[in-house]
Structures are given as structure tokens and as C-alpha cells.
Nucleic acid binder design. Structure first.
Length: 608
DNA sequence: GCCGTTTTCGGCCCGACTGTTTTCAGTCG
């Protein structure tokens, strides 16, 4: 039972209670409980009831229910509520414009799922219900159609060019002085549900007209003086808000979220005798701050918090204490350490890829083709690796100015063995191990398989550890805590794979790795030149995880990177390439150093 | 349902837009 599973039960319970007309603050407590459990970096299952009740927002009752869910898969209240408000009914609230009150009205008339709702709407029966009308009936039919077509959230990388294009077109409107894309886009979540655009300046009518008339707009969902919403042809919803300049910071803060972060800030405002809204921070209707985010945060007694951290985890306490981490920057990366060429399943030649890496300002990179078991991808066996040594030598001569590490992305076989023998491994500078096959193994087997692979002394890093494909494939099942503990023990690093549909490790897991002092590398896994630019999406995940430059090994120069690699020689067993003197289990010094860096007492801002 | 150097009871974040209504409830973010 994962934290996400527990959170899902609480979310559903909240909606059920809401439809049932429960005390709204009780509903909120379940939502808050879901959020707290979901953002834990350790399994809630490992805490007893008392330990759970120590969490903010979790009291005795919710703690007991979490234990129930962990132990039995459900809890009494959930089962009872399912009788009153079936899950099909809960799903109705996902339709645009359908909240708990309307769903309750429907339920009382025997309309309890999407099919029944659509039928009633088509039969023009909805308009007769109290609080419903002809217009709403039409909106509901539209919402059903949209829900069936759109799959919900889109990848950040898909929204990226769209957001920039719309923002650019609004910037051209006469009088507009500021345009910013807020929302989860600004927090750099790996997927976004919609886009929120904030605008300062210009005649309201002109700005709104420019927005609703944008070429990609398929439908205008609403338009007022200060707010308009549209749906693009791609299905993505975009909201635009026009705000006065003196409120821009407060509005940017507000619309960037997360909601939970905002609520925390508002509570702090109230404690200080003020009130915070998207119009500003006020004291007795007098404006205290609002023009910039910095000014609002300062007036609340804390430093400015980077949007990526605004998830109501621990960032507010840290901002108050002045110990926010100084987040890793894209510009700080010196290398891309996971690159394929057309020697295996990439599209471009070795020389092209290395040249493109150099163009991106890297001083070193690793070429990492697949191993033999991925025959379709022309994976390398030992003989091919031997030949590759010369090819890498050649490309080093062809493309000066960047050091090329001879790497390989070696498959972790079904039993945890590596897909290359020790002779082949000994020829490599950089060994990534990855899961590509038999991804459906049950949790105990998968955990054992990964643990075994990480014990091999030749291994440097685990690539895209969970093997998830966002929106397409669930992460593989293994015990992440044990895997990370094992990685820390054996000096194996973790990759943040920057392919936008992987983003793997994701922010929570990367945070868990960091807590164990495991160095991370951010790599693109590029299969073509253009994919080298995916690096930013890996950096975003790292920033959301709170990682600093120090936590990310490929921010170091080549010498420091090599130094760190050379220390990865803990020995569970000797291999021919191990100098005997280096045997013995110890944590690589780089990890001890990294751990030291993240003591909460240490101001995160003292070093770049 | 949670929480507490103002409280163990009585609070709990704020505003725009829409549609159904004749002054506001519901939804959304």
C-alpha cells in the first residue's frame, strides 16, 4: 500500500463526504490528510498510529484510518460511504462545472454515472432540476465530450512551446507591460492540467480580445473584465488574468500555487494581523505589499521561495529560518552522461552527438549505447564494446574540446545479473544499469533483482530507475527505500532521466535519494541531437526535489567528477579490475561530503 | 477532522465568473 494509494482513498472519501453534505472542514481535513501523506518521502505504512499522528494535519482519527488502509486495504468509513456515494458518482465531480452540490442533486434523482447523465441531458430532463437550466444542460454535454477526448494533464514539455507562444502574442498587445505564465507550469511540475497567464497593462477589452482570438483557440469558455478562459484545439485549457501592476506580485504568487502553499501563507498573514489575496497583502484594507513576490514574502517574514519548492512540504519553515537550498541551475551542468548514437538505437552519429554536446557548453559527456539483450536496439556485446574503444578514441580526436567517456547502458537481466561480462565492463569509464525488460515482475523479485545489480562493483549509476512512462506505463514495483539504502551503501548514484515522459527519478524519489546522501546525475538519454535540449526538464525535477549544485555530480568539472568515480570501490566481491588495496566497504567520500552539505542548520546559500 | 504562548471549544483562505435566480449558490482556481 503506497502513500499514493492511501492519499487516493482520502481524496475519494473527501468527495464522498462533500456530496453527502458533511461539514466542509471535515472534508478539508481529509483533503489535507491526502496531501500530507502523498508528499511524504517515506512510506506511511512504516509508521505506527502514534508516529502518523505526529504529522501535521494528521490527528488520531486519520492516523487510525491510515493504519486500517495499510493493514486491510480499506477503512470502515470508506466502505460505508461507497454504499451511499458509489465511486461512479465520485467520478462525476471530475466533469467541468460539476461540483458536489450538483452531483448530489443528480444522485437524488437517480442519476449516478456518466452514461445516465448524458442520457438525461440529451432527453432535456436536466433543465427541470432545481438549480439547473438549459445552458447548464448544454455545458454538461460538452464537458462529457471533452472528458472523453482529453486525457487530462499534458507533459510539461508539450505545454512549454505553447505557453511561450501565447505569452509572446499577448506581449505584442499595445500597453501590455508584463506577461507571466503561472500555475503548475511555473512550478515546473512534470505535467500540467492547464495554463494560467498573468498580464499587466493594456486595455482590458483589447487584451481579452487578443487572447480569445488567438489562432489556436477552439472555444471560449468564459470572458470577463479581468479573467477569460479558452480551450485550445489541442484540448489544453488556458486562463488569462489581467491584474493591476501594484498587485502583480501577489497575483503571481497566488496563481503559481500550489494551493496548499497559498493556504499556509494566508494563515501566516492572519497570524500577523494581515490578509493575503491575489490583490495584495493588506492590513486593515491598507496595502502592505503586492507589487512583487519578493516584497510579499518579505512582509510575511521570510525569503523568496523558488516556485519549484512551493508544495507546502517544508519550504515555508526553511524560508522563515533563511535556510532554503540554493537550487541547481541548468547553466551549472558540465556534462550529459547518458547519450545514444546510431551505433545502437540513436538517430545521429557519434561525431554529431559529441559535437552537439560540445555546442551546448559541456566539457565532458558519456556515450552510452544499449547492451546486447536489446537486440532490436543493436545492443553491444563484449566484442562490440572492444571495437567501441577504438571508435571512442577516434571521436575524441575528431571532436576536440570535450572529453568523451566510454560508457554503456547495461541492462539489468531478469535475475539481477548484468547484461555484459566483467571483461566488457572493465573496458568502460561509465556504467549505467537500467531496467528495460520483464518490467511486470512482482515486487519482491524486482527488489531483489535491482539490489543484486547495484552490488556489482562496476556499476556507477542506475538509469531511469522506475522505468515509468508518464501517462503510458506505471513505475515498476520495487521497494524504493531498500533500493536507495543499498545504493547509498554500495556507492551507486541515481539518475534523473530528463526525457520529459520519464522524468525518472521524479521529485519525491530524488528527494529521498538526497536524504540518503546519494549523488544524483541529470542526463538526457538523448537518442538524437534535439533531445540534448531535454536537459532542462531533468533540472526542473531536481529543483523540485530541492537539489543544489553540490547534490548533482555532473555540475562538477571533469577532474572532480573522475575523483568521485574513483572512490566508488566498495567491495562485496573482488573483480579483476579491483586494486586489492582498495577493497573494504566504505562510503565514498563524495557521499559523506554531500551529506554534510545538507544539514538543515547549514544555510543553503553560502555556496553557489 | 485538526488544532491550540490569545482557545480543549470554536474557529478553520479568498475572490471572479456563471447561471439561475430575483439576491445568490455553485464551481473553480
Amino acid at each position: 500500500m503506497t502513500n499514493a494509494d492511501i492519499a487516493k482513498v482520502f481524496q475519494r472519501l473527501a468527495t464522498m463526504l462533500e456530496i453527502d453534505g458533511a461539514n466542509p472542514f471535515r472534508v478539508r481535513a481529509y483533503r489535507e490528510g491526502a496531501r500530507v501523506v502523498e508528499s511524504l518521502t517515506e512510506p506511511a505504512a512504516e509508521r505506527d498510529a502514534a508516529g502518523l499522528a505526529e504529522l501535521p494535519g494528521i490527528g488520531k482519527d486519520l492516523a487510525g484510518k491510515i493504519r486500517d488502509i495499510v493493514d486491510t486495504g480499506t477503512t470502515t468509513l470508506f466502505e460505508e460511504m461507497k454504499g451511499k456515494v458509489p465511486l461512479e458518482v465520485v467520478a462525476l465531480t471530475e466533469l467541468q462545472g460539476m461540483g458536489p452540490k450538483r452531483v448530489k442533486t443528480l444522485l437524488e434523482r437517480g442519476i449516478g454515472n456518466r452514461a445516465q447523465l448524458e442520457k438525461a441531458a440529451r432527453a432535456r430532463q436536466l433543465r427541470e432540476l432545481p438549480g439547473f437550466g438549459e445552458t447548464l444542460e448544454q455545458k454538461i454535454l460538452k464537458a462529457i465530450a471533452v472528458a472523453e477526448k482529453a486525457s487530462g494533464r499534458v507533459l510539461l514539455a508539450a505545454a512549454w512551446p505553447v505557453a511561450h507562444a501565447i505569452a509572446a502574442s499577448i506581449r505584442k498587445v499595445r500597453g501590455v507591460s508584463q506577461v507571466e505564465v503561472a500555475g503548475s507550469f511555473r512550478r515546473r511540475k512534470e505535467t500540467v492540467g492547464d495554463l494560467d497567464i498573468l498580464v499587466v497593462g493594456g486595455e482590458p477589452e483589447t487584451v481579452m480580445k487578443a487572447f480569445t482570438g488567438y489562432e489556436e483557440v477552439a472555444e471560449v469558455l468564459g470572458s470577463g473584465e479581468t479573467k477569460s478562459s479558452v480551450r485550445l484545439r489541442s484540448g489544453l485549457q488556458v486562463d488569462l488574468r489581467l491584474v493591476p501592476p501594484e498587485s502583480f506580485g501577489a497575483a503571481l504568487l497566488y496563481f503559481s500555487g500550489s494551493k496548499a502553499h497559498n493556504i499556509e501563507l494566508r494563515k501566516i498573514a492572519i497570524e500577523k494581523g494581515m490578509s493575503l489575496s491575489e490583490y495584495g497583502l493588506t492590513r486593515e484594507d491598507r496595502m502592505v505589499a503586492g507589487r512583487t513576490e519578493e516584497e510579499v514574502y518579505r512582509a510575511l517574514g521570510m525569503e523568496w521561495i523558488p516556485p519549484e519548492l512551493r508544495e507546502a512540504r517544508d519550504e515555508i519553515e526553511r524560508a522563515i529560518a533563511g535556510i532554503l537550498p540554493r537550487l541547481v541551475e541548468l547553466d551549472a551542468l558540465r556534462a550529459d552522461l547518458h547519450i545514444h548514437s546510431d551505433r545502437s538505437d540513436g538517430r545521429d552519429t557519434l561525431e554529431t552527438m559529441v559535437g552537439a554536446a560540445r555546442e551546448r557548453g559541456y566539457t565532458y559527456c558519456a556515450i552510452t549505447e544499449h547492451s546486447q539483450s536489446l537486440a532490436m536496439a543493436k545492443g553491444f556485446d563484449t566484442a562490440r564494446v572492444r571495437k567501441s574503444v577504438e571508435e571512442i578514441e577516434a571521436v575524441r580526436r575528431q571532436v576536440p574540446g570535450i572529453e568523451v567517456l566510454h560508457g554503456l547502458e547495461v541492462d539489468i537481466l531478469g535475475d539481477g545479473a548484468l547484461d555484459l561480462n566483467d571483461e566488457g565492463l572493465a573496458l568502460l569509464d561509465w556504467v549505467i544499469v537500467s531496467l528495460h525488460s520483464r518490467l511486470g515482475q512482482p515486487r519482491p523479485e524486482m527488489t531483489a533483482r535491482v539490489l543484486k545489480a547495484l552490488e556489482h562493483p562496476a556499476v556507477h549509476v542506475m538509469g531511469h530507475p522506475t522505468a515509468r512512462l508518464i501517462g503510458q506505463r506505471e513505475p515498476v514495483e520495487f521497494d524504493m527505500e531498500r533500493v536507495l539504502d543499498h545504493a547509498a551503501k554500495h556507492g551507486v548514484m541515481m539518475e534523473i532521466n530528463a526525457q520529459p515522459d520519464r522524468t525518472d527519478l521524479g521529485d519525491l524519489h530524488a528527494r529521498m535519494a538526497r536524504e540518503r546522501g546519494i549523488p544524483l546525475v541529470i542526463s538526457t538519454d538523448a537518442h538524437g541531437v534535439s533531445q540534448l535540449d531535454f536537459m532542462r526538464y531533468g533540472v526542473f525535477a531536481a529543483r523540485r526535489a530541492g537539489l543544489t549544485n553540490d547534490d548533482v555530480l555532473n555540475t562538477r568539472d571533469l577532474e572532480a567528477f573522475r575523483e568521485a568515480l574513483s572512490r566508488r570501490r566498495p567491495a562485496t566481491r573482488a573483480t579483476p579490475r579491483q586494486p586489492t588495496g582498495e577493497a573494504g566497504v566504505r562510503k565514498p567520500a563524495v557521499m559523506a561530503e554531500a551529506r554534510k552539505d545538507r544539514r538543515p542548520s547549514r544555510p543553503g546559500r553560502t555556496r553557489p
